[in-house]
Design a binder for these strands. Structure first.
Lengths: 197, 197
DNA sequence: TTCTTCCACTAACAGTTGTTAGTTTTGTTC
DNA sequence: GAACAAAACTAACAACTGTTAGTGGAAGAA
């Protein structure tokens, strides 16, 4: 029991440091010797905790993906209007990101370095997530919540672009809470879509 | 004369291929041997045309930066309202990107691999460009063109995030013209800001 | 004590990296 | 045909890459 916890804790420490390194230098430019140095150990010692460099990337990417998925599922359950659903979805997304900005940055910028078949799996998860947001927007259009002449693909891509670069410029020491930030972001984006804003 | 043209043309061919490779695999993961193979030559032969791998990245990044700068300067000259200026600025930005989507992608995602002092110079150019957009938004706020309670930093970051991921998903074979796309994007973003939309 | 688990070590591997030096081929101009 | 520049070549370099094998110490449980 206790051993397992300790093990996980050390392994997670490695993964967390790796996330920082991957975010800073990018996955390819970050070497295992760099990572080891950050932890004060030798490169070979890392392999007591992880199987490979890519395993770290996989863990980071798929763990984040799972969190986003869970968050969106919660929102979809709610019985509210499309614009409200979109608002909640955005806030949820921001909150998940804010919980681990470093992992979020890696999730977004480094996932392409996954090899097959994980890359394919990852992209499928991603397209599914995006499509569920797209569906919300389309529902909003059909119920008259949003403008009729909206290009939903453009809208959803704009939405995700805005969301996804957040880890790059959001200051974690900032006084603004993620909830509030998500709120503001949602306001800004949705009021650009709403019919009678 | 003719020699110079041929030289430039071959060098530009190398740089163009490098841009494609950097976009696909990322700067660090792209090797000079990969690049050489794409051109059907040996890796060492590349050095007849370029000084170093990083020189290629520098060329790509700073050439794009210059184009963005020029485009924005044109817009700033115009004597129009802030919202119109913003609209023109966005369209200009999209048009510059559309002229070379590959170089744009490299400009945005790979610039961090520049070494000092070029990295510093690049970031200064970038912050300057962003601040000029921010100024336009602030002007719009003070003239009543935009809502008073806007967080201008958030607004400008959202704007750039949306713009900057475009090369990632925009299809160059698409029927939609860059002008039109810029127009739509501007509409979507600005109407989220405008007071009486 | 003895056993076990965790976590680090040293040494080394085969392959890849950007780049250089020096040479040869190719095509054009006088 | 001689001269020239552009653009390719071969061979090699030192450094760095992710990773494996085998070892040993430390801590806690039996």
């Amino acid at each position: 029991m206790a051993e397992v916890v300790t093990n996980l804790s050390r392994k997670e420490q490695v993964i967390r440091m790796a996330a920082e390194l991957f975010k800073e230098k990018g996955y390819s430019a970050a070497s295992m010797r760099d990572l080891a140095q950050k932890l004060g150990i030798e490169a070979a010692s890392l392999y007591s905790h992880i199987k490979s460099k890519e395993e770290i990337l996989r863990t980071l990417c798929f763990d984040m993906a799972a969190e986003f998925r869970t968050s969106l599922s919660e929102v979809e359950k709610q019985n509210v209007s499309a614009s409200e659903k979109l608002r909640l979805g955005i806030i949820g997304h921001v909150k998940v990101m804010a919980k681990d900005l470093t992992a979020s940055a890696v999730f977004m910028n480094e996932h392409r370095h996954l090899s097959q078949p994980w890359l394919r799996d990852f992209l499928l998860l991603r397209i599914n997530y995006i499509n569920r947001f797209k569906t919300i927007i389309e529902q909003g259009v059909s119920t008259g919540d949003f403008k009729k002449d909206i290009d939903t693909k453009l809208a959803v891509m704009t939405l995700f672009s805005s969301l996804n670069w957040m880890p790059g410029w959001f200051n974690p020491d900032s006084t603004i809470e993620p909830e509030k930030l998500g709120q503001q972001l949602a306001d800004m984006l949705i009021n650009g879509l709403k019919q009678n804003a």
